[in-house]
Simulated scan of single mutants.
Amino acid sequence: MSALTTTPAAAGPALKVTQGRVLRSEFTKFRSLRSTAYTLLTAVVLMVGLGAVFAAVTASQYHTFNAAARASFNPITTSLGGVMFAVVAFGVLGVLVASGEYSTGMIRASLTAVPRRLPVLWGKLAVFAGVIFPVSLIASFISFFLGQVLLNSHHIGVSISAPGALRSVVGAALYITVAGLIGVSLGALFRNTAAGIATFAGVFFVIPPLASLLPSSISGNLTPYLPSNAGAALWGGAQNAQNALAPWTGFALLCGYAVVLIAAAAWRLRRSDA
Rank of each mutant, 00 (worst) to 15 (best):
M1N: 15
T7W: 11
A9D: 13
V22A: 11
L23N: 05
R24W: 11
F30Y: 09
F30H: 06
S32P: 05
S35M: 07
T36K: 01
V44K: 12
M47R: 04
F54I: 14
A55P: 14
A56E: 12
V57T: 12
T58I: 08
A59G: 07
Q61I: 13
F65L: 03
A67Y: 12
A67K: 15
A69Q: 10
A69S: 12
A69W: 05
I76L: 01
T77S: 05
G81P: 09
A86V: 00
V88F: 00
A89K: 06
A89D: 11
G91L: 00
V95S: 03
S99T: 08
S110M: 07
K124L: 08
V127Q: 00
A129I: 06
G130C: 06
V135G: 02
S136V: 14
S140M: 13
F141N: 08
I142V: 09
G147Q: 06
V149Y: 15
L151Y: 00
N152L: 13
S153A: 10
H154S: 11
H154D: 10
H155Y: 12
H155G: 03
G171N: 02
A172Y: 12
A173I: 15
G180D: 07
L186W: 13
G187W: 01
G187Y: 04
A188T: 09
A194I: 05
G196I: 07
G196T: 08
V203Y: 07
P208I: 01
P209G: 02
L214K: 10
I218K: 10
I218F: 02
L222S: 01
T223H: 09
P224I: 02
Y225T: 00
Y225Q: 03
G237R: 04
A241I: 15
A241F: 14
L253P: 09
Y257A: 07
I262F: 06
A263H: 04
A263I: 03
A265Y: 04
A266I: 04
L269T: 07
